[in-house]
Design a binder for these strands. Structure first.
Lengths: 66, 66
DNA sequence: TATGAATGTAAAGTATATTTTACATAATGA
DNA sequence: TCATTATGTAAAATATACTTTACATTCATA
């Protein structure tokens, strides 16, 4: 699975830390997500999509091997 | 967070085991999700929504305390 | 009533998400 | 140049997702 967090973050111009604060996780969690270091929980996916005003499917994209 | 898995499953008339097979998890994982025993990963949420032909937001709903 | 299919549940084990702390680096502006 | 802000990264600790095995229960139906 890949994601567009970095791009969406750029669109609304917020830092990793701001996004982290808005969804109540650590900044490292955001950084690791953007680096595809792990798969976030559905709660985080819903919150992130909400911050960006988009659907989860618009931010997180399944890949063949998933 | 709550979810509509049981209802969506009833709509397309498949068992927990069939859903489990389709998204490649154990039947107990589906059962536990329906019982809100844990929060699934975003990969599973995306796969489940896909099986039901809906958006993640239509199946998984954030609650106040999330 | 007996049988099978679907579901509920529990315990133990493994994998992985997330936090915390800490430090390093890059970029920007005073 | 110096200070600040944003980002990358890593290790250790903790929480939780998910599997496997196993058994119990419910429900429909022969």
């Amino acid at each position: 699975m890949k994601n567009n967090i970095r791009v969406e973050r750029a669109i609304i111009n917020i830092t990793q830390e701001e996004l982290a604060n808005r969804i109540a996780v650590s900044r490292q969690t955001i950084n690791a997500m953007e680096a595809n270091k792990y798969v976030p929980s559905t709660i985080l996916a819903l919150k992130i999509a909400k911050v960006f005003g988009k659907k989860v499917e618009d931010i997180f994209i399944l890949e063949k091997h998933d």
